[in-house]
């Protein structure tokens, strides 16, 4: 049976359609659900194996990115969401979704304190919205979503992605193998905070973290925006090389790997 993914939307979330497409493309079944419909009937959450909170601009980043949407979850769905998180199910938050997960306290959930805010995604160091491609190094063995990925090329598009945690929390995140992706140079060498390799100033170049179980992933970059070969920055050069070699052009984008890992987890 195909694993079922619920894709939350509403109030300015805007990447729900392509996120849903990625789950379907990789063998899952996806349903886009407005948060108000879930609040009306919270128990329907148990119908799904995967919960995705896509990117977007919920509430226009008012009162801090992801904060107002997270408050909506906390005020109305805390029990169901925490319950979901503690089962053998998967959750992903991408960009605004990561900001929402962080504010809801689903990542990093150090000391199993699910529901407590422990990290912040602050204003980019450039103080500006940044839409650009980044290289990501997988640094976690436990993360379900990033299995068999070493280096991944994905775009970021956000104004508040500057990852921050106090040193005690940060140390535990590292000790627990909860750093999923770091921004790196194309040759995998560390970004060391250098802009634009690290596009937002994130502490220790952290781009994505998981919860202690490795089943919940929060990531700033957008895997669902690299769903086709022609999405990737620099595809035109790759195309020309392949044509001159007489090779066929690929169709899929490498961002799909993330979704495939999630779907495969249940197969």
């Amino acid at each position: 049976m195909k694993p079922k993914a619920i894709i939350l939307t509403g109030y300015g979330i805007n990447c729900e359609e392509e996120t849903a497409w990625c789950f379907e493309k990789t063998g899952g079944e996806a349903e886009i659900v407005h948060i108000n419909d879930l609040i009306e009937n919270p128990n329907r959450l148990s119908d799904y194996q995967i919960l995705a909170i896509p990117g977007g601009f919920s509430y226009g980043d008012d009162t801090g990115s992801g904060n107002a949407y997270a408050n909506k979850i906390k005020n109305n769905l805390t029990e169901q969401i925490i319950n979901f998180a503690k089962q053998d199910k998967l959750i992903i938050g991408i960009c605004n979704g990561f900001q929402i997960l962080a504010n809801t306290g689903l990542v990093p959930a150090i000391d199993d304190k699910y529901g407590e805010r422990q990290v912040a995604l602050m204003r980019n160091k450039t103080a500006r919205y940044e839409c650009r491609w980044t290289w990501l190094k997988n640094t976690s063995k436990k993360c379900v979503w990033t299995r068999d990925i070493d280096l991944l090329h994905l775009p970021v598009a956000h104004g508040e992605g500057n990852f921050y945690a106090e040193s005690e929390i940060l140390n535990k995140i590292k000790e627990n193998d909860q750093v999923a992706f770091k921004y790196v140079n194309e040759d995998s060498s560390p970004a060391n905070q250098k802009f634009p390799i690290n596009p937002n100033g994130a502490l220790e170049d952290i781009a994505a973290i998981t919860d202690p179980s490795g089943r919940i992933l929060g990531m700033m970059p957008h895997p669902e925006r690299f769903l086709a070969f022609t999405n990737e920055e620099g595809w035109e050069l790759k195309k020309e090389r392949l044509i001159r070699e007489g090779s066929a052009l690929p169709k899929d984008g490498e961002g799909l790997k993330i979704f495939k890992n999630a779907v495969q987890y249940f197969l």
Partner: peptide, 20 residues
Amino acid sequence: SYQYDHIVQGGAVIGPLQGK
């Protein structure tokens, strides 16, 4: 170009900034 999201909706092919 960098401060405008030019890739949302997943359909970007050729964007505002081209080449290396």
